[in-house]
Write a protein that binds this DNA or RNA. Structure first.
Length: 507
RNA sequence: GGCCCCGUAGCUCAAUGGUAGAGCAGUUGACUCUUAAUCAAUUGGUUGAAGGUUCGAGUCCUUCCGGGGUCACCA
């Protein structure tokens, strides 16, 4: 049983609904007529205007009532559909006094209607539908949380609109219904994934789907969500990455695979983190990380071109240009330049921690040398990388799945792409030597079970690798973060339709 | 999880510790070219919840619930 209490406004609207029904008027019909979208009606009407001898345009439109202006026996209203908005012109002469009164008495802002009539231009010059018949196709009981619309230079400006972030996220349907710019964010998001697919498909990649429920999680350092299969009495993890399954497919003979899907990480929620988020990973046989860097630049340029029409965009006040060559700087050089520490002089965690402490930098307790370097990058380097850049050659102990550099045992062939001061993607020359991989897993086994960096040993993955895995370059990118960039949104929740929020009492 | 801030009408927001208000939405009325229409009148509140201090609490204190920011964490 619902415990919902109707508000006064809702009770009023329910009463209108009841009265409509008493008059035999169905407020939620199963079938509707529609000859044009609002956009098509406007386009065709303007074309007919241009052709002097064209017949008047008859149209049947559907949409949600977004404004009503009553002028006695004349009513102006705007309807909005998925394509735009259009003014309805309701006049007693055309519609009939009785129908006009029905509209006045029972129709509200937010209702969906079907209106039939002839397109014309009002004295004020707005292309409008002179309504000959109108009917309710879905009555809105709850008023939409927006007061009024205004059109300024062709743009709809909504006044006193829904702004409370909590309500916007919990009731995204209402947010979308009243905030057109929010609808636009998710169109850009869809265009982004579409163009990434287009790029990868055109480069001979195979799109695949791998398990979300995994008996062993891996491919990243994060706490997993744990669940259980009842019948198999088996503990399962929601995946934290796709990596290990995608690389198994290279063993199987596919040269290029990718997956776009959801990862789950049981970590804190922040401006840049949601417990479930969308990731793109691809693996490219016979490529190394340098090749993947080039490919990444190409891919993001293509995507920006498709989605934004060019390589330049503005993000939170910074002008970002994906078009130029991305600077490539080693982690060691970046730490030297931005943090003033020469990593070569500090070959172990203890000496590096001391050097950092001397500069009054934050030193994470019990951190490995790799973890300390990562901290330096996060604190001192990352925020400075506004224009698209690659950092490369990462510490071995924080990269258990990456191939070692041929000339430095402490370093692996790994890069991260940074844009606007945050990490966008992460890639490496994938480790394909099963003996080295086993050694890496065993290094991890010395760690505490709850250490974030501990990577579980995956026997089946090792078995796959023993069959022979071609050398390959792998890549992962957060789609949510890319969408944040493309839509100039500072918070990941703005690019996730239904972001995670704490459950409310009673829900 | 720590710290800081916030929660008032459907929406956006006011209110020195001293009568809880405005605009829009809603309701009633006027109006046949409006477009944030206009004009007149009007309804609507357990101020997130529970305690406490006080003659008196939206305001101060405590706890809880929810949200935002930030730090930690997030390879």
């Amino acid at each position: 049983m619902s415990e919902y209490q109707y508000s006064e406004i809702e009770r009023n609207r329910l009463s209108k609904l009841e009265q409509l029904r008493q008059q035999g008027l169905e407020a939620f019909p199963a079938r509707v007529e529609r000859s044009h979208t609002t956009q098509a009606a406007l386009t065709e009407f303007e074309a007919a205007e241009a052709a002097a001898d064209a017949a008047p345009l008859q149209a049947t439109l559907v949409g949600r009532i977004r404004s009503i202006r009553q002028m006695g026996k004349l009513i102006f209203a705007h309807i909005e559909d998925g394509y735009g908005r259009l003014q309805l012109f309701l006049r007693a002469d055309t519609l009939g006094a009785e129908q006009l009164q029905t509209f006045r008495d029972y129709y509200d802002l937010g209702d969906f209607v079907e209106a039939r009539g002839e397109m014309f231009r009002t004295k004020a010059g707005e292309a409008s539908l002179n309504v000959a018949a109108i009917r309710m196709i879905a009555k809105a009981i709850t008023p939409l949380p927006a007061a009024k619309d205004e059109v300024v230079d062709g743009e709809v400006v909504r006044h006193a609109t829904l702004a409370d972030p909590e309500t916007r996220y919990r009731q995204r349907y209402a947010d979308l219904a009243v905030n057109p710019q929010v609808r636009e964010v998710f169109r850009i998001r869809a265009a982004t994934t579409r163009s990434l697919r287009e790029f990868l498909d055109s480069h001979d990649f195979l799109e695949v789907e791998t398990p979300v429920l995994q008996p062993v999680y891996g491919g990243a350092a994060a706490r997993p969500f744990v669940t259980e299969h009842n019948q198999l009495k088996q503990e399962l993890y929601l995946r934290i990455s796709f990596e290990l399954y995608l690389k198994r497919l290279l063993v199987g003979g596919y040269e290029r695979v990718y997956e776009i899907g959801r990862d789950f990480r049981n970590e804190g929620v922040s401006r840049k983190h949601n417990p479930e988020f969308t990731m793109l990973e691809f693996y490219m046989a016979y490529a190394d990380y340098q090749r993947v860097m080039e490919f990444t630049e190409e891919m993001l340029r293509f995507t920006a071109q498709q989605v934004l029409g060019g390589a330049k965009f503005s993000y939170q006040g910074n002008e970002i240009d994906l078009g130029r060559d991305w600077p490539r700087i080693t982690v060691a050089d970046a730490v030297q330049e931005f943090a003033g520490i020469d990593l070569a002089q500090y070959p172990d965690a203890k000496s590096l921690a001391a050097a950092m402490a001397a500069k009054e930098y934050y030193v994470a307790p019990k951190a490995s040398r790799g973890k300390l370097i990562e901290g330096l990058v996060g604190d001192h380097v990352e925020p400075r990388l506004i224009q698209p850049s690659f950092l490369y050659d990462y510490p071995r102990e924080i990269s258990p799945l990456a191939k070692s550099s041929p000339d430095d045992a402490q370093t692996v062939e790994r890069f991260e792409g940074y844009v606007a001061g945050f990490e966008l993607c992460n890639a490496f020359s994938e480790l394909n030597d099963p003996l080295d991989q086993l050694a890496r897993f065993e290094e991890m086994s010395g760690m505490d079970a709850d250490d974030e960096d501990r990577h579980p040993l995956d026997e089946d993955y090792l078995r796959a690798m023993r069959y022979g895995m071609p050398p390959n370059g792998g890549f992962g990118m957060g789609i949510d973060r890319l969408t944040m960039l493309f839509t100039d949104q500072p918070n990941i929740r703005e690019v996730i339709l239904f972001p995670h929020l704490r459950k409310r009492e009673g829900e």
